[in-house]
Design a protein around this nucleic acid. Structure first.
Ligand code: DCP
Ligand code: MG
Ligand code: MG
Length: 1038
DNA sequence: ATCCTCCCCTAC
DNA sequence: TAAGGTAGGGGAGGAT
């Protein structure tokens, strides 16, 4: 089958397997195989005659004497159970490969027998052909295999090594174990291998998960556009009320609307019928509640579903996806919700949170019950009338509890969780039901004896009773959980949740496909890039950082590499140049690739026309100023105008300015003029790159410092601490009056008028919108929510009135409030704080995954191949004491020695040589300052500068691109030479490689231009290499 | 201290 | 056949 590379099977399949069979915490009496992790090779054969799969089934259905089962080969796997295997696999997998008989033998002897005696031998491999070693017993039925006892009693079931030629023949086509059997030219292959012309398109058209994701972001956008305001008015004096609306078995309901004859039958939505055999791997996206009564869940494989449904051959109905209809119903749902309230948070196509506090009467939340429930019922009726589909609604005082309520409300119901009945819902709730607690965290919790929310609460209370210094076990329980996860659990298991309704802006966009077989890898890369580029264009998104991830057979992680674009872009060409570069650099053999992902981050709004570098960066600058103004608006004192964005016109090279498109020239001049008028321009060394601002006429020197900062995409202005933000120093339970006093600007006059006037019009307008059109209180609220991330337990309107704000630091806590709390809670708070304190003091919490796979970093290291010992055991204090000159000399000597050694060792391999020099560098560069390039020393800033240097288009000119200027060429060359001297060969090599790639790109645009640049480039390379040869007796190879 | 990058994990 | 995508939250650890 397609998935013969099992180690490459997705982790979530593994998860699914473990979940399905609930191996964790199994109840078995005998622990014969405890600590062992089995992996069954060959299970996935769909051949119904293949007895081996029954065998595995048997193992799964029983608590297999403490053994764990891996869905695919992982690090933790201890034994591979197989009947036969290809030579290649045997060599590849460095684990014990044993025949299934071993397991039977162990069972019979009631102890572990030497697996070596059951080692799979080469003689059992027939020409790479998989063959059977089990035969199905004549009287064997599946039900007879339901317990190990049965098995142990039935001697005739002990497998033999009889080869069944009839089945093995048919099997090989399923397995594809013999690659020669796969006819790549067959119609099937043409349609289905990832390189098929429309593979990617078809894939995405049919991927439910991709649809799900896209719908979600669309809906977020949709809500943001359609809500009139997202600031809840009058929220401070009422307990909040949230609802969680979720359609019942969404896909199934939609598809079943016009099929009443199926309403009482188990129905599932999936791609294939899965009628042949019981092993379809097609996922059930959604199933109706009849199907659920058989134990079928969303997400199980169709094969599994058919097994769970006893009369399934006859009565389970598999319906096909109807994505358009789902979309339609989803839109209707959201329109209905938006009709009721502005405060809608999109969760998924069939699901949303709404806040309805403003629709509730005054009083405690118990008193809301009637109003809330009748509102919910009315919404449900509304939904049903519009869509003929049923929804369930959970209502409570926060988002978390409303979601939990929905679970009980399903199907077709409403549940209200009030303060008085919270415990009834929460205490017995499985921790796995808490949102955010998935397979891994649940396992972790289970392992420490926590199964219900109650256990989780008890655990921490138990904590509170003791000096936690002694109770390391319990303490570790907390420490092992990540700080905020720990905190989250701590709060969630008590039903505390202070999140509000929000639809955050997108931060990244990406595509990924896991491929079954590789044909034309380049084609595939290009296809995916095209898909990404198209999506970005459609969504009007551009970004600057490209990440390529390759899933490889060889590595468990996903080796990835990032690359910068010169400025925010979304066109296929630019992205693909980077993507192919990154692919080359990752240097994973194409035949090993099992998946490709490309994503773009550092997104930029692109509602404006296609801008030049300058344009885009100017806009970003403005953005920042705007942001700053917003903050300043809430400051008590006026702030001086920001200095670093100023550009002195005398410092801008007029030649450069002229090369820019006219509209941008205009904007540039206007913006400068405005600043001049405001009298805020000063001569400032800081604002210009270059040794002397007046003499150089080069392009590079004309890039204002502010823009170089932008290149770094840093928020470069420093926030003044303690001002204009509400931080942890604010009393945790301030009165409303106090809040307002602190948060609201005294008047518009507080804003620095100069700054204000200097703003571009559109920003000023926006500012006015904020200041004048929004009621004061709401502004305060807005600011508070914005500052939330900075604070451990922030002051938010949400938790001012609720019980949510119980864990500030002690100094923040309002004493009177604290003292009025029940003793028990006081105690709890204290201990929790001590735990937090303790955590701060001691080693940081460990990540909770048990066995980190081979990480990208390690991979990258291995990629470099050469591991050189770090240099210099010379006593540091001794070195420090030396005069500067001597220090330098000592270091140089040390480096040279080391480097020579490395060069000798590495046999003048160029890459290794660079690594060698580089590794010297890294361990010692604290002695030297890195050479600067126009006052910049950070690699990626310079990298971008060089990129821009070569590839900045000038829309006005015929060629479209600059030609290099002599002064720039020299500057670059000299900088490179300095780097070479300072042993930053790695950097030089990266720069040069990048330049070469840029040049190649240029070649496709303008040959004339390219010739000029090539000459310049070769000149630089020559001089650099001369120097490299002089100093290191080697040369750089590009 | 505060950021950024690389990961892991989760939800639908 | 089967379509196993995607965005975001958060921790660890490094750079600054
Ligand atoms: N593993 C999953 C889970 C969900 N979905 C799709 C199909 C579902 O219909 C839809 C909504 O997911 P829900 O979790 O809301 O599940 P249902 O709506 O199907 O059932 P429920 O009644 O439990 O909400 O998302 C999917 O394709 N694969
Ligand atoms: Mg649903
Ligand atoms: Mg849902």
């Amino acid at each position: 089958m397609a998935y013969k590379n099992d180690e490459d099977y997705m982790a979530h399949k593994q998860v699914k397997l473990d979940e399905q069979y609930e191996f964790v915490g199994s109840q078995g009496t005998s622990k014969l195989f405890e600590g062992l992790v089995f992996y069954f090779d060959g299970y996935r054969s769909p051949d119904p005659n293949f007895y081996f799969s029954d065998f595995k089934e048997l193992v799964l259905k029983n608590d297999f004497k403490g053994a764990m089962l891996d869905g695919f080969l992982t690090k933790r796997t201890t034994h591979i159970i197989a009947q036969s295997m290809t030579r290649k696999k045997m060599d590849e997998w460095k684990k014990p490969i044993v025949k299934p008989e071993w397991i039977f033998e162990c069972l019979q002897n009631k102890r572990l027998v030497r697996w070596q005696n059951f080692k799979l031998f080469e003689k059992e491999i027939v020409g790479g052909q998989v063959k059977l070693s089990f035969t199905k017993p004549s009287n064997g039925s599946s039900s007879a295999l339901n317990s190990l006892t049965d098995l142990e009693n039935e001697k005739n079931m002990i497998p033999t090594n009889v080869t069944d030629h009839t089945t093995s023949t048919s099997k090989s086509t399923y397995y594809g174990a013999n690659p020669k059997k796969v006819d790549v030219n067959s119609a099937w292959a043409k349609q289905n291998i990832s390189s098929a012309p429309n593979f990617i398109e078809n894939f995405y058209l049919n991927s439910r998960l991709s649809h799900l994701s896209n719908w979600k972001s669309d809906l977020k956008e949709f809500v943001r556009e359609n809500q009139q305001s997202n600031v809840m008015v009058d929220k401070l004096n009422k307990p909040k009320t949230f609802m969680h609306i979720d359609m019942d078995c969404f896909f199934a309901s939609v598809s079943l609307r016009d099929k009443p004859q199926l309403w009482d039958k188990p129905v599932a939505i999936a791609h294939s019928e899965g009628t042949t055999g019981g092993s379809s791997t097609s996922d059930v996206a959604s199933c109706n509640y009849v199907a659920r009564s058989f134990g079928i869940k969303n997400g199980v494989s169709l094969g599994k579903a058919r097994q769970l449904c006893p009369n399934l051959q006859f009565s389970i109905q598999v319906l096909h996806y109807d994505f358009e209809k789902y979309d339609e119903v989803s839109k209707k749902l959201y329109l209905i919700l938006l009709k009721h309230t502005n405060f809608v948070q999109a969760v998924s196509c069939d699901e949303a949170f709404i806040e309805v506090t403003h629709l509730m009467p005054h009083g405690t939340d118990d008193e809301h019950l009637e109003t809330a429930v009748s509102l919910a019922e009315s919404i449900r009726r509304n939904i049903f009338n519009e869509t003929q589909c049923k929804a369930s609604i959970g209502i409570s005082r926060n988002i978390l509890l409303s979601r939990i309520a929905t679970k009980s409300a399903k199907p077709d119901g409403v549940i209200f969780i009030s303060k008085s009945n919270t415990a009834d819902f929460l205490n017995d709730l499985d921790v796995g039901e808490l949102p955010g607690v998935g397979y891994h965290i649940k396992s972790k919790l289970n392992a420490s004896g926590v199964f219900k929310c109650q256990d989780l609460q008890t655990r921490s209370l138990f904590q509170l009773e003791h000096d936690f210094g002694q109770k390391t076990g319990c303490l570790n329980f907390f420490l092992e959980l990540n700080m905020f996860l720990g905190e989250m659990l701590y709060k969630y298991c008590r039903g505390i949740d202070d999140r509000g309704i929000e639809n955050k802006e997108r931060k990244s966009i990406g595509v990924r496909v896991r491929i079954a077989s590789k044909q034309e890898y380049d084609e595939f890369l290009a296809g995916l890039t095209r898909e990404l580029s198209e999506r970005m264009t459609r969504l009007n998104l551009k970004g600057r950082l490209i990440t390529l991830k390759l899933k490889s057979k060889l590595y468990e992680g996903e080796p990835s590499k990032v690359g910068f674009l010169f400025w925010p872009m979304n066109d296929f060409g630019s992205i693909f140049v980077q993507v192919s570069k990154l692919a080359t650099e990752l240097a994973i053999g194409f035949e090993k690739i099992r998946g490709v992902g490309i994503s773009v981050t550092k997104l930029d709004a692109t509602s404006t026309d296609k801008g030049s570098v300058i344009r885009t960066l100017l806009e970003k600058q403005a953005e920042k100023q705007k942001k700053r103004i917003r903050e300043d608006a809430f400051d008590v004192e006026p702030i001086p105008a920001p200095k670093r964005f100023e550009i002195n016109p005398s410092q801008v090279d007029p030649d450069v300015l002229e090369l820019l498109p006219p509209d941008i020239q205009e904007e540039f001049r206007n913006s400068l003029q405005k600043k001049m008028d405001n009298g805020r321009i000063k001569q400032s060394d800081e604002s210009i790159i270059g040794p002397s601002s007046s003499q150089s006429k080069s392009f590079l020197s004309a890039i204002p410092v502010s823009i170089r900062r932008e290149i770094d995409s840093e928020l470069c202005y420093s926030r003044r601490k303690g001002k204009n933000k509400i931080s942890s120093t604010v009393n945790v339970s301030p009165s409303k009056e106090l809040l307002e006093e602190h948060l609201v600007p005294k008047s518009h006059a507080d804003l620095n008028l100069e700054v204000y006037n200097a703003l571009p019009d559109f920003i000023r307008e926006e500012y006015e919108e904020i200041i004048f059109k929004t009621p004061t209180k709401e502004r305060a609220v807005d600011m508070l929510s914005n500052s939330r991330k900075k604070v451990l337990y922030p002051v938010t309107p949400t938790n001012i009135v609720n019980e949510e704000n119980i864990f500030p630091t002690l100094s923040q806590m309002d004493k009177s409030i604290y003292e009025n709390l029940p003793l028990e809670i006081q105690k709890e708070i204290k201990t929790h704080l001590r735990i937090l304190e303790h955590r701060k003091k001691f080693s940081p919490a460990k990540n909770f995954n048990l066995e980190p796979p081979l990480s990208n970093k390690i991979y990258q290291e291995r990629l470099k191949e050469a591991m050189y010992p770090t240099i210099s055991q010379v006593d540091n204090s001794f070195l420090e004491a030396l005069p500067e000159e001597l220090k330098r000399e000592v270091n140089l000597t040390l480096k040279m020695n080391k480097k020579k050694k490395n060069i000798e060792n590495s046999n003048i391999n160029n890459t290794t040589f660079v690594d060698a020099v580089n590794s010297c560098n890294r361990s010692e560069n604290f002695f030297f300052e890195k050479p600067k390039f126009f006052n910049e020393c950070e690699f990626h800033i310079i990298f971008e500068m060089l990129s821009i240097w070569i590839l900045t288009p000038t829309h006005g000119t015929e060629t479209g691109f600059f030609t290099p200027m002599e002064s720039d060429k020299h500057a670059v060359k000299n900088f490179f030479l300095e780097l070479v001297e300072g042993m930053y060969l790695d950097d030089v090599l990266d720069y040069l490689k990048m330049m070469k790639i840029r040049l190649n790109l240029l070649k496709t645009v303008s040959i004339d231009c390219y010739t000029n640049w090539e000459e310049c480039f070769l000149c630089i390379v020559k001089d650099v290499n001369d120097q490299v040869f002089k100093l290191y007796n080697s040369k750089l190879v590009l």
